[in-house]
């Protein structure tokens, strides 16, 4: 199993990063830190996708000297997917941060448990 993991060391690192982000998301009660964990998970996914597109010994998919052979270039599809993902993650992060700012202005804390307690008290 470890040789298989070593052959795919990029994917392994991506999975470990994903796990770190997920742990961060679950363990931290501070909203900003949760968002940072979420972004670490995003980066792990990009690393995984970009690594899937690579082929050993080939060039970036930009046509040079008119060579249009499949053997010459790496896979361009994951690059496009990662681009989409980055844009969406930027938007989602900005939206989450804006919501956090609104919560902070209302409850004057970033602790998610305290916010839940305060909002429950308000409901009563």
């Amino acid at each position: 199993m470890f040789t298989a993991l070593w052959n795919n060391v990029e994917a392994t690192v991506a999975i470990i990063l994903f796990g770190i982000g997920f742990t961060n998301l679950m363990l931290n009660r501070n909203m900003i830190k949760k968002i940072i964990g979420f972004d670490i998970m995003d980066s792990a996914i990009y690393l995984f996708l970009a690594a899937k597109g690579y082929i050993k010994g080939r060039q970036a998919p930009i046509v040079v000297n008119g060579i249009q052979d499949v053997e010459a270039y790496i896979n361009p599809v994951p690059a496009g997917l990662v681009l989409t993902g980055i844009v969406v993650s930027v938007s989602v992060s900005a939206l989450m941060l804006a919501l956090t700012i609104r919560l902070y202005r209302r409850y004057h804390t970033l602790d998610i448990d305290e916010i839940t307690m305060l909002s429950r008290k308000e409901e009563k």
Binding site: A4, L5, I55, V70, A72, N75, P76, V77, P78
Partner: peptide, 25 residues
Amino acid sequence: TVSYLPSFGDAHNPDNNEVAARYIE
């Protein structure tokens, strides 16, 4: 699951299929 994935950078991985070939050619 990753330990069952095809190895990194192999040209015969299933994601390097006819779609990528078409885009390049």
